[in-house]
Design a protein around this nucleic acid. Sequence first.
DNA 1: AGGCTTTGTCTGGTATACCGGACAGAAGTC
DNA 2: GACTTCTGTCCGGTATACCAGACAAAGCCT
Lengths: 268, 268
Amino acid sequence: MNEGNTARTLAPIALGGSRERGIDRVLTLFAYLNACGRPVRIADLPKALGAPRSTIYEIVRVLAEAGMVEVTGNDNKVFFGRAMYLYGTSYFRSNDLIRRGSSEVEALSTLTGETSELCMLNRNRQAIIHTHPGSRPMRISSQVGSQFPIPWTASGRLLLSQKSPDEIRDLIQPDDLILPDRRVVDIERFIEECIDARGKSVVITRGLINSFSQCLAAPILGIDGEVQATICLVLSIEVSDDQRAVLQEQLIASGRNLSMGTVRTKLT
Amino acid sequence: MNEGNTARTLAPIALGGSRERGIDRVLTLFAYLNACGRPVRIADLPKALGAPRSTIYEIVRVLAEAGMVEVTGNDNKVFFGRAMYLYGTSYFRSNDLIRRGSSEVEALSTLTGETSELCMLNRNRQAIIHTHPGSRPMRISSQVGSQFPIPWTASGRLLLSQKSPDEIRDLIQPDDLILPDRRVVDIERFIEECIDARGKSVVITRGLINSFSQCLAAPILGIDGEVQATICLVLSIEVSDDQRAVLQEQLIASGRNLSMGTVRTKLT
DNA sequence: AGGCTTTGTCTGGTATACCGGACAGAAGTC
DNA sequence: GACTTCTGTCCGGTATACCAGACAAAGCCT
């Protein structure tokens, strides 16, 4: 019933009915479909995206023709299409880090029995690129493709660790500082934590996204030492210190394993 | 050195310098990136796509900001980006057939030792959705994401088998009828072959894409009996009749396995 | 170094892509 | 069946996205 809540966060600004480019409409549409995670009725899109009906129908028609989205036969719902999958696969094939990272996540998760994730920055969000659930009876896991506000996660602190305070301030929207339980993260405190994360081989956050989990994240470094991604473990808050120390070592090893040019240069 | 050969097949018409929509430029760009299969210098795009420089730079900037493409740091090449991967994954997750089909391809290929592929229609091309190379010393295989003119393949005949002659004529461009060795497929003959394929449980083509391979394709049927995709085997032309008969049965079983509602309804 | 080509940025003008709104058909409501 | 709401299509006007072309910076040859 509440219209446009999602739209307000997705649509660039969407004031007053100012005219907008087709390409921007398309990008907003994609983001919205991804956020929904399932087919959406075309008729709902104008409201949800704050766009005129005629525009939406035209855009969907063009995108459907190109295979970027598909329209289901009977009830006119749209979702991503085959072409999107092909292009995404193309990216995956070309991207060594994601390929290696995905299999490292599987390995780490199998080894430890815990949920493991590969995370990267996507604009001003932290995206779950790949994940493998743990083998414990109570799994804690998030969906591939879902995106979190950066301040919610340990990975986020690492991913921003090489940015300047001003860059961080620019990147973080006020909304992003509100945790799921309504607590608010102080931006200055967050910036400190990011800078603190610089060069660290592991960062831990506890009780941020919820009260019963903690997140251990290790950086994956590029050829010139910048943080390209993180690999992380999602643990129950109750894991013993000893256990965590072991897991932490394995996590750091995985992160180092995926990093470029840092380990190999070591002399025997 | 030959400029624009690819562009001519990709760009809608692109005559005379008529103005074109941003969204169409974007779709052309995506298709071109996919056709190249690797990062492309931004500076080459205006020539390749028949678009003005200023437009290309603007479009790439916007798409890069949204993460749909990425620009490499040093030599300004563009390729698909993380967002494309996320959205593609989203499609994959929502699409049962591709998920099951991909694993069936793996299974069939492992079982037979031959190259296997999952194919679907994508606009007026046949797309390789998933593939697994055979275990023979001389592999014959094509890349995931690559797209062929429909008349080149056995799968193509199945995928069009339920269309009317007029629909087929509309779909097939004159260029598509030219085989890699310059022979030309007769459109009327091709239409007959498509209609022939209607209801067949396997279609075989020999020496079409090259002289040393043959392609066996089996339909994957949707709930109401229409061909949604095909699964196929790429074999050396020299495989014995006996061998082929065995492979053919396994292929048909895989296709039936992936089809909806046809087998399960059988009485014991 | 001097010319030549290539690359990326910027700007103003105009063809047109997007918008608003009208319209008809479908679907629900009483 | 009359009335309201919702869905999808169509059309003319205008704000503007795209284009052409100029410019500077950087390569790249002799």
